[in-house]
Structure formats: structure tokens, C-alpha cells
């Protein structure tokens, strides 16, 4: 599957990895990757190192993830290793001020 989530209880991290396209076609898989996980106190990591591109619907999905993280009292949400193209999209949308980005 092109979206995977891996619970790392030792480090207290839930890592969601998106591969290939990150657009509307992923919305269901994306939601499934976190909605049934117990994440209170955990760090939510959205690993985009393998994502080819993202569009504005992916921005919407990120906002939903952020909302979910806040509701479920996750420790924090970070976006990890976006490609230069994805980083640019995040910056253009001012998401770098909304969500922490680890390059």
C-alpha cells in the first residue's frame, strides 16, 4: 500500500509514510492510517520522503490530521523530509507556520 503507518511505542512515535502521489486519491487510505490508533502523548510524524508531489487536497488532509492530533492529545505533529517540490508547496500555502517541518 502506498500509505503506511508504523507505531513505534519505544520512541512514542506514529510514523505515517506516503509514497508516490499525495492527492485526492489518497484521502481514504490516509485517514485509515491514523484514525484507529491510540496516539495521546505520542509524536505524529508524517514522513514525505517518498512522496513525489502533493496538491491542495493533500493540504486539506494534513489539516484534518492536525485536527485529529489536537483532539487526540498527541504530543505534536511534524512533517518529515519533504522533497524540494513538496516543501515549496507547503511554504506557498504557509503551512510551514502551521506545522513543524523537519528537513
Amino acid at each position: 500500500m502506498s500509505i503506511q503507518s508504523r507505531l513505534n511505542s519505544e520512541d512514542g512515535e506514529l510514523v505515517i509514510t506516503v509514497e508516490g502521489r499525495f492527492d485526492y486519491s489518497k484521502h481514504q487510505d490516509f485517514r485509515c492510517s491514523y484514525k484507529d490508533q491510540a496516539i495521546d502523548g505520542m509524536l505524529l510524524v508524517l514522513d514525505l520522503s517518498a512522496a513525489e508531489y502533493m496538491d491542495s487536497s493533500a493540504l486539506g488532509m494534513m489539516l484534518l490530521l492536525k485536527e485529529h492530533a489536537e483532539k487526540s492529545q498527541a504530543r505534536d505533529l511534524v512533517i518529515r523530509r519533504p522533497s524540494p517540490a513538496i516543501l515549496k508547496v507547503l511554504e506557498v500555502a504557509n503551512f510551514d507556520k502551521l506545522i513543524k517541518i523537519e528537513s
Partner: peptide, 12 residues
């Protein structure tokens, strides 16, 4: 890769 990724966002 970067230009392709940005064009992809535009077209998408």
C-alpha cells in the same frame, strides 16, 4: 524532480 513535482501540483 522538483520542477516535475511542482508541475504535478499545478496540473492536479
Amino acid at each position: 524532480e522538483t520542477n516535475s513535482g511542482l508541475l504535478a501540483a499545478v496540473v492536479s
